[in-house]
Computed example of a mutant assay.
Amino acid sequence: GDTDKKELYDPEKGTAQARKDAGTFLQNRIRQCETISALMDRPPLIVAPFDAELFGHWWFEGPQFLDALFREFHSTEHQLAQVTPGEYLHVWPHSQVTRPAFSSWGDKGYGQVWLDGSNDWIYRHTHKMVERMAELVDRFPDEKGLKLRTLNQAARELLLSQASDWPFIIKTGTTVLYAERRVKNHISNFNRIYESLCRNTVKTEWLTKLEKRNNIFKDIDYRAFRRREPGISA
């Protein structure tokens, strides 16, 4: 906390507290389901979305908490099951539809941190990249070899350009030059790939270096950007 009185970090105490918190979390969810079940015509579904970077970054014992939670889940007698929202809807397809209001954890609870006069220039580029990525899928629907690698790298560059960290950093004024450079590099890489594919002039050496440098999403499939008819889900 915001105090000058800091105690030395004790990893054993931290681990013990994480395990205790995991048990408390599970017991509270069990009681919550027992209460809600009496009011519903189907098993209740609890969705627990978390920002992944909380586990291990802002909360050092976060990974230990998750480990303890799942171990506790499987060693405790209860009626809960671990499912994805999709699996739940497969069993209970007719459910009430709601539309949450647009909100965020950012300043004032809206989107002004990520869409501001300092960073709004990003989006005209990323929107165009999405259009071009869909165009590439239409033109090259089932590629293999070098073209497949090139198209997959285009998808990586697009996703990297869309990382919310870049506009956030630019708005908050921390490492602005770094964030701007990253966005511009990914945009430039994508555009070069797009033009190379259109001209059939992909350079293997350049592509290989780019794959090694920006190698996130190893198993990405560029076809994920295929256009879909309205009302049809993936």
Rank of each mutant, 00 (worst) to 15 (best):
C33Q: 14
Y222F: 04
D165V: 01
M133P: 00
V83K: 08
L8E: 08
F168K: 00
T208I: 08
T150E: 06
F225V: 11
Q162R: 06
I187T: 05
G173I: 08
K108N: 09
Q96H: 04
E180N: 04
H90S: 15
N214T: 15
P141D: 02
K108T: 12
T204G: 04
Q82C: 11
Y123Q: 00
A52V: 10
A48M: 12
V130A: 04
G86P: 06
M129N: 05
P85L: 07
A224R: 02
R99E: 14
L54C: 13
F217R: 10
D2P: 01
F65D: 01
R227L: 05
P141C: 04
S161W: 00
S161K: 00
T126Q: 01
L39S: 12
T204H: 02
N191F: 09
L148N: 09
K171M: 11
K13E: 14
I169E: 03
H127S: 08
A134K: 07
S233D: 10
S161G: 11
A18R: 06
H78C: 06
K218I: 15
T208P: 00
L177S: 08
S103T: 05
P141I: 08
W92I: 12
L45K: 11
R149Y: 01
E205T: 13
L160D: 09
Q82G: 12
G62Y: 00
I220L: 10
D107Y: 07
K212Y: 05
H74L: 15
F217C: 11
K212P: 06
D221V: 10
H78F: 03
S75E: 14
G231N: 05
A101G: 02
L69G: 07
G14K: 09
P44S: 13
F225W: 14
A52G: 02
R226F: 03
V97D: 10
V83M: 11
D120V: 13
L115F: 10
T98K: 03
P11F: 10
G1V: 14
P93C: 15
Y110T: 14
V183H: 00
V47Y: 05
D219I: 07
D219V: 05
W114P: 01
L151V: 14
E143Y: 02
G62L: 14
K147N: 09
E61A: 12
K209M: 09
R149S: 05
R223V: 03
